[in-house]
Design a protein around this nucleic acid. Structure first.
Lengths: 191, 191, 191, 191
DNA sequence: CATGAATGAGTATTCATTCAT
DNA sequence: TATGAATGAATACTCATTCAT
């Protein structure tokens, strides 16, 4: 059995990552000491370094293991030709970025200063963008509107999708993906 | 003369803020030590604390003094009735948020962890949103499209405007405000 | 073995307390830097904070662990009825306050500025006073002299006992507890 | 006129000493920064060093100028032969040590660590002792009790007199000089 | 595997003191 | 005589990391 220790039957490594996720999201990577992570995880200080030789490895593991895009088949969104708004909405709901709100905060905050995080965020964004574009292409078979416009639409939608939570946390103003999906669909003349 | 000292004829306080802006943007607030700021500013360590009793005061001063919305008259954007795309584009160009790229990075990065920064970002975002909405109202006198849609359009445009630089830095994908302006105008039926 | 390290086979925590006791007594708490304590204790600076998270905790530990009144049975002083002078002298010799001269200096010097030290000193003084009073009561069974006078006598004796060393250090004038015991005995008519 | 400045018509030097007296008594010499003294005195930081080239000079001036023994004639206490208790009580009331409670705290606290303060305290104590002895000699003309006992009595009384305030502040137990005077008189057989 | 004592470089901050004005 | 910017050494405290057990 993995869980040979206390604390919810969750093994030490997982508890360390849980604690780090919480703290990194709350106060940032730099402001979260390994000692505090260990304390929150209910593990001795030394054990953190047993699993993660360097502090940065905790962040890397977090990003590696806790943010990813599900491997859906290309057409999984069931794009409905003629219904770009619905298609985008469905994409938003089946949202391919699996990451807790905490992980998103970490992703955005540390992206600028830690290249590995930045790269991951770039890849996630590209993937969401690619899917949005593909979904729009399928939903608008007649290719009404040129390709450039479609790309702008996909980029805008991807930005809103990925950033929405951050946006509302930081600015206090919520943006509803469905409403944006509708807006974009109108722009592309899909209604 | 104010600037009786070395270094570009700029006084010490300003040099400290300059250095802090650079470093905070590059590596984040926590990772920028006051000693490094002082070194980059060519001032002795102690002087930083003469002007800013606490390190956080440097960040606060930066946000207070180096990010603001110009007090333009409400109609300064010269909204052209019937031309929402052009109106938004002009708004983007006369962009009311005066903040260096560095200050924007600082704003987003520290917003989540330092309330004063978060508040400022929230206020800036509201202001940009308000202006975008107002511009759209003027550009679409017939009020085609309901108010809700107009708000979504304004919020989306504000998000793109404020985040654009961050977005491209973080995701590696540039979003052109003009293209988004055009997209939004189409959605509102303004073309 | 506890003491697996260098320096007299005494463990690091004890060496830190020893060093602090010496320095606090010599130059006062404020004037004794943690760095100097560490140096004198032959431990790295960081270790001081491993055992004592704050500098003040060193002082508190010192007072907690190195000043106390032995738990003697109430009648341990073997008061001799009719011999108050001898009784007080014996009390002075079996003095119940176990504290090095250094600890006493620390106690008096920091009492005014650190409440925890002040409280401890207050408690120690009360205890010595209580014992002196009890000893006098036992030595003067006929209760010659009223209770008020007896209390003054006990308080005076306690003050001399507790302060004696400090008094002679500070004023250069020694006060002999035995002589004071004799004086007090005469005042109470015990001879 | 001395008082050319604000603040109660008291000149800057006096205000600095007042502030220092307050702060040194409250928190000790080391813990009172010159900047804080200046602030409390409502003078600019630089002015402190104008009057007192070094910080220690403030303490020295305080002790020099604010603790002294009045130059009373030797027999000023009007010793009443046959009434040692009354004589000591009168001595206590005409107490020759002129020093505010604050100055006494400073005197005792810094005596151990600053030789000049220590010396002053030693001299003050000697003087009080000398006067107490002289008063007792005059009050007990028959020289009842030997000289040694008389000295112990004088020393005890001097200690109580000088320390009384400190004692009660530190230990929470008040000692009444009059009661001690009575006690000592009884010991010397003066009643 | 697990643990916590040990290490020392680094951090924010304080402070007495100087000095040009 | 008055002033506050300037200086840099010193201070309490933090922290990632190592390692003997």
């Amino acid at each position: 059995m993995r869980a040979s220790k206390k604390d919810d039957g969750v093994d030490a490594r997982t508890r360390i990552l849980d604690a780090a996720e919480t703290l990194f999201a709350e106060r940032g990577y730099d402001a979260s000491s390994t000692a505090r992570i260990a304390r929150l995880a209910h593990v001795p200080k030394g054990l953190v370094f047993h699993y993660f030789p360097q502090k940065i490895d905790v962040l890397v593991a977090l990003v590696d293991e806790r943010t990813f895009i599900e491997e859906l088949p290309e057409d999984a969104v069931e794009a409905l030709p003629g219904d770009p708004a619905g298609t985008l909405s469905r994409l938003a709901r089946r949202f391919p970025l699996r990451a807790s709100p905490a992980m998103r905060r970490i992703l955005f905050r540390e992206a600028a200063t830690h290249t590995s995080v930045g790269e991951r965020l770039g890849r996630l964004n590209s993937e969401v963008f690619r899917r949005a574009r593909r979904a729009l292409e399928l939903a608008l078979p007649g290719a009404r509107g040129d390709q450039a416009r479609l790309e702008v639409a996909a980029a805008t939608f991807a930005a809103v999708l990925i950033y929405q939570e951050n946006l509302s946390q930081l600015t206090g103003q919520a943006v509803d993906p469905d409403a944006v999906a509708d807006l974009i669909a109108r722009a592309l003349g899909g209604t």
